[in-house]
Write a protein that binds this DNA or RNA. Structure first.
Lengths: 177, 177
DNA sequence: GGTATGAGTTCTAAAATAGTACTTGGCCTT
DNA sequence: AAGGCCAAGTACTATTTTAGAACTCATACC
């Protein structure tokens, strides 16, 4: 499978990755959330190559994650701003950040702290169930086929039979740990 | 900047991306959460090239996101399982999934539904503040330098002065159901 | 006129990926 | 014992993507 077919998969993760799943896009978006808006500011802060940056910004605009807004005429100049669609990527960025804080904090601790202005505390993001409010645990979630399961589907959808699950072990499992 | 220097940045998002930020890794992890464990199963379900798959699995093991566990001897064979560190990536995957469900659902709706076994409902993940429990909004979060801000830092840290003028804050938006 | 600015585009070399074929250890069948 | 099969990789080539520097373009400023 090639990268450019990813958005056709019947899987929302694949489709999301087709928009933000390349090497640089999430770093660009992180800077967007920190109010970076202009080409040269992105370029300088990220150390990204200019051609790649141009390409990524264009793709984000094509996908309505960013929009290009003029901030002056005369030399006509544009800046890039998050749309609502882009703002809705905040949980993605925050959950990645949180994981990095937990598992790769460096010697002295996490590089950033996040303060919730409303309540005044530094916090971590926590992911909960929209229905009952309980914190989500992967073991407590069951994946089911949704209405769009076969929209155009070249891919197995939900937990198809794997050899792993079916085969009776030829040899006894050897535990080592 | 090259990709392989990303883990040195004083930013948890960069560091996280140095582990899971390439083309395939998140798709591999998605399948891990669906109980895929063996090389050929990953390869077949993802359509990924075998050399790339081997490389990614190895890197995930090196980073302790997966571990390799023998499931038989005799022909010695191993499978790949999520560690706790890997399981803790669940919010990342779920928040991406949720965004894809919202913005790229296809004609008939989202490809998958997620049922919370504990409460019995299909749900969306919601991200809240660990301190006050309120849903997070990017505009209500302030980023500050943390204790590890300058651990080895070649990069500007928090909101350095930009030429772009600040915007006056606008109205808060309400969460859509 | 000469230089500076911001936002790109062009170009080449290096790196990563796609896709196929081959290898390896051990079992199973004939 | 020979040949085939299986799972898990490696080796190798062709294509695509990225890194990095240099160049363009429109206007402003001195």
């Amino acid at each position: 499978m090639q990268w450019n077919k990813l958005d056709q998969e019947p899987c929302s993760l694949s489709r999301t990755l087709s928009v933000i799943g390349d090497r640089w896009t999430l770093l660009i978006l992180r800077d967007c959330f920190r109010k970076v808006r202009r080409f040269d500011d992105f370029q300088e802060r990220l150390g990204i190559g200019r051609p790649v940056l141009a390409d990524r910004l264009q793709k984000l605009v094509d996908n309505s994650v960013l929009l290009k807004a003029a901030y002056q005429d005369r030399p006509m100049r544009y800046e890039y701003r998050l749309t609502q669609k882009g703002l809705d990527l905040y949980p993605v960025i925050m959950s990645m950040n949180c994981w990095g804080d937990r598992y790769m904090p460096g010697k002295k601790g996490p590089p950033h702290l996040y303060r919730h202005v409303t309540c005044g505390h530094t916090f971590e993001p926590v992911q909960i169930c929209s229905e009952c409010g309980e914190e989500l645990d992967p073991r407590g979630v069951h994946v089911e086929a949704g209405p769009g399961a076969r929209d155009g589907a070249p891919m197995p959808v939900v937990d198809p039979p794997l050899k792993t699950a079916r085969q009776k072990p030829k040899q006894r499992l050897k535990r080592r740990t």
